[in-house]
Amino acid sequence: MSPRHHLDPATVLGFAAGSLGPEMSVVASAHMESCGHCRQQLRLAERIGGLLLDQQACPVPGKDTQAALRQAMVDKLDRIPAPRGEQGLPMVGASSARDDVDRLPTALQPHFGSSYRSLKWNWMAPGVHCIRAPGLPSLIMMKIAPGKSLPMHSHGNSELTQILQGAYDDALGHFAPGDAADLGEDVEHQPVTTPGVACICVCALDAPLVFRGWIARKLQKVLNL
């Protein structure tokens, strides 16, 4: 699994700082289990955070303080050796997930259980089923039938989606297993699932979706999306 769509740098920084909401953190963790690129970015963000704390403790005097801080961080990062044997390797638990196609990513198991076969889907709309995580209603796992076109929509704020099985296409490209769709309120799209296999994904919302069609807007009140 080699993801082509990754977490936004702001999401990685928020994850490193512990400032993401719980739903977003779960989905980000699920993505990082299969994405060596985003794990590497996380390590970099954590180091930068540590360097910023060091610089706050030892401020640099003078008018060019900000430039000096940036250069000091670059110099220190250049001297930090790259992690050995980590790039491209899964985190603990991801290798077993690859060996067992029925096993959910480790980050999702406390909220949805350990396997796909044990999931108890609830009907949402024709061809669309979902499960809301207990205690985290904005953390939603969805199963969308093959060849299904979802309503055109944008986002009240942010949406973070991790593709688990199947795939979909929209104006942003092709999203396959391992890919993350890290979307802001400026994105409007209409996912269409690819033929053959149902698309299963997990998503986190920090604001309701914004639907263009009036029928979808009516259903939104019932579906609580």
Rank of each mutant, 00 (worst) to 15 (best):
D64S: 14
Q56M: 10
Q87Y: 15
G21L: 03
L104Y: 12
F15V: 03
C130G: 02
G93S: 00
V92R: 14
I215Y: 10
H5R: 12
C130F: 05
E23R: 04
V74E: 08
G36R: 06
L139V: 02
G14H: 00
R117N: 13
G85F: 09
V202R: 01
D100R: 14
P83S: 05
S115T: 10
L104W: 10
G50N: 11
G173V: 06
S118I: 03
G196N: 12
D64H: 13
E159L: 13
H174L: 09
N122A: 14
K148S: 00
I48F: 14
D75M: 11
G50V: 10
A145W: 07
A45E: 00
E33N: 10
D8G: 02
L89R: 15
I131W: 01
A45K: 02
Q190T: 13
R39I: 11
S19Y: 00
D182S: 09
R43G: 01
L108F: 02
A68N: 11
L139N: 02
S158E: 02
E185V: 09
Q220V: 00
N224G: 11
W123Y: 12
V60D: 10
I140D: 01
V12H: 08
K120P: 06
N122G: 08
Q71R: 14
Q87G: 12
L7R: 04
S149Q: 15
L172I: 03
G18F: 02
G49V: 08
G36C: 08
P3G: 09
A181P: 06
R217C: 07
D186R: 11
I215T: 06
S29R: 15
C130M: 05
L104N: 13
V74M: 06
N157Y: 01
D179C: 14
A180Q: 02
L51P: 03
R47G: 13
L44S: 05
A204Y: 03
L139Y: 03
L104Q: 12
G21C: 01
I131L: 03
C199H: 08
S29P: 09
L205S: 01
G21E: 03
D169Y: 07
N157H: 04
S25D: 02
M142N: 11
P208Y: 07
R39K: 14
L42V: 00
G156E: 11
L119M: 07
M152G: 10
I48A: 13
S2H: 08
H111Y: 14
D169W: 07
R70G: 01
G213H: 09
D64P: 07
A133Q: 04
D186Q: 12
D179H: 14
A176C: 12
Q71L: 13
C58N: 14
H37E: 14
S2G: 05
G113F: 13
A97Q: 12
S154W: 05
G85S: 10
H111K: 06
Q190I: 07
I140W: 04
I48V: 15
A82F: 01
K148L: 04
V101E: 11
Q56R: 14
L223F: 08
P177F: 12
L223G: 05
A176K: 15
A10L: 01
L183V: 06
V92N: 13
P22Y: 02
